[in-house]
Design a protein around this nucleic acid. Structure first.
Lengths: 267, 267
DNA sequence: GAGCACAAGAGGTCAGACCACTTTGTCTGC
DNA sequence: GCAGACAAAGTGGTCTGACCTCTTGTGCTC
């Protein structure tokens, strides 16, 4: 696997290897991270809130602005904070993503394949659909129903449709009661989006798509977890197939008149 | 779910919301990230290799050293690069982790619970065990067998044992043929480790633990994927139970003589 | 009342000096 | 000749303080 150079290679035991996880990033960077973390944990800082201006905050922490910025950059990279030029720095809110573009970068390093992303999605979303059926609360069902309705309503407007599509999946994630799984999903789907900018003819079968979502909703609503999982898995699988088709088509002919502008993916 | 303030709250549609994913981090930071990304993709830079010294590299990119450092810090935060004071900056190698301490920090924000981590692990590792049984190659089986042997051999040395334990699980991840799932697992387990530093009496049942690993190995070896998954899930479940016990014990009585120093978790 | 201009506040970048850690190779003393 | 101490080079870490750019709000003008 990772530290195996050749075929003969066996056991080169470096007992400390496991520990390598920690001890990164200089002292001051971590000081900033921990300070902010502490402020979050004790409630001084809540998601969406703004931290003090850099100059001021740096002075309070008795470090230079440069060091403070390093720490902020670190947390911004992890998606914990959002920095807005000319406005301020904020604690992130909304669906937690484990590490934004992280997956995309890692992909470049280790050669992640598209089908692997779908396999992961299949697993995660399938399980979450099942969990949503078991643990979902009334308000989740309500939201899901609304999104399905909106999907049917915007069936002629791919842009709008996509929004509700995404929301539907996020609501299921929320209903699953496990934010960690939700984060993982968010990470992967976001890599799937802007990582490649797939261009998919959304118009093709939005009606079918809406129908499937409706079925999934029903299964969850009636707490039929195995059915929910099955439907969700089939749904993702067909999304994958659609993308594969699209890809094959695109690579075979570059001149097909269509290609509906900046791509979105039907989820 | 995320953007739902009250009970009446419905549909406050902000069509651009989905796009919010991109457009973060200033221009120069991204320039650095993209430049390095390009160098990785075209093979100029490979995992484990060192990038040029900051002063030199900054000059080459025609940006200030400070900006370069921001970019490097960004990638370091995502686990793409490792910075070693006094030595140099390197492209990360080894098991890719989506975002190091990211989960821990996000946990502080969104209140991740321990059982949720185990639920995620159960799902991921269970699936990977099944996949390993289906897709594993001879060399993976060999490595797995070796690790099992080492486990039995180091049954009296928890420290050593843990190393092989971890390697066993990583080898399965590698054998699953899906590095994305492997990354997700790595992320979660690392958060489980140093996120809390659970103290678990390892000595308790290392023999049993080794036996279980052996059984899992056998199932994978004989390509019995459902059995592999079942055993792995049971294994993780019992690890969770053990930790729960430990926790309950620790919180009830703080004076129990044991507590074998800096904690490791039996995997 | 609708625009527009400007000022204030906040993050972004820069330059250059200096500090701290690693590594390496030489020099010294035994 | 060898071991240990030391010095220097190379590289990341931090600081200072100035200046640039973006966003937002205010108040003036028409």
């Amino acid at each position: 696997m990772y530290d195996d150079p050749g075929s003969t290679g066996v056991q080169v035991l470096k007992p400390t290897q496991i520990e390598t996880t920690h001890e990164s990033e200089s002292h001051l960077t971590m000081q900033v991270v921990n300070h902010i973390r502490a402020m979050i944990e004790d409630g001084t800082l809540k998601p969406g809130e703004k931290i003090p201006p850099e100059r001021e905050f740096a002075q309070k922490l008795k470090i230079s602005r440069a060091s403070l910025r390093t720490g902020i950059g670190y947390m911004a990279a992890m998606g914990i904070m959002k920095v807005r030029h000319g406005v301020g720095t904020f604690i992130a809110e909304g669906p937690p993503e484990i590490g934004k573009s992280s997956l995309g970068l890692l992909g470049a390093l280790h050669g992640f394949k598209s089908w692997q992303m779908f396999e992961a999605r299949l697993l995660l979303e399938g399980k979450m659909a099942a969990l949503a059926a078991e643990r979902g609360k009334e308000e989740h069902f309500t939201l899901l129903a609304e999104e399905v309705a909106e999907m049917y309503a915007t069936i002629d407007d791919p842009e709008e449709y996509l929004i509700h599509d995404v929301r539907f999946h996020r609501t299921i994630a929320a209903a699953s009661g496990n934010p960690i799984l939700a984060s993982l999903m968010e990470t992967i789907t976001s890599a799937l989006y802007d990582g490649r900018r797939k261009t998919v003819g959304l118009t093709r079968a939005l009606k079918d798509s809406a129908d499937v979502h409706r079925e999934i909703y029903r299964a969850i609503r009636t707490r039929n977890s195995s059915e929910a999982q099955r439907l969700m898995e089939r749904h993702i699988q067909s999304a994958k197939d659609a993308q594969d088709d699209e890809e094959r088509m695109a690579s075979r002919k570059r001149k097909t008149t269509r290609t509906p502008a900046n791509g979105k993916v039907a989820v």
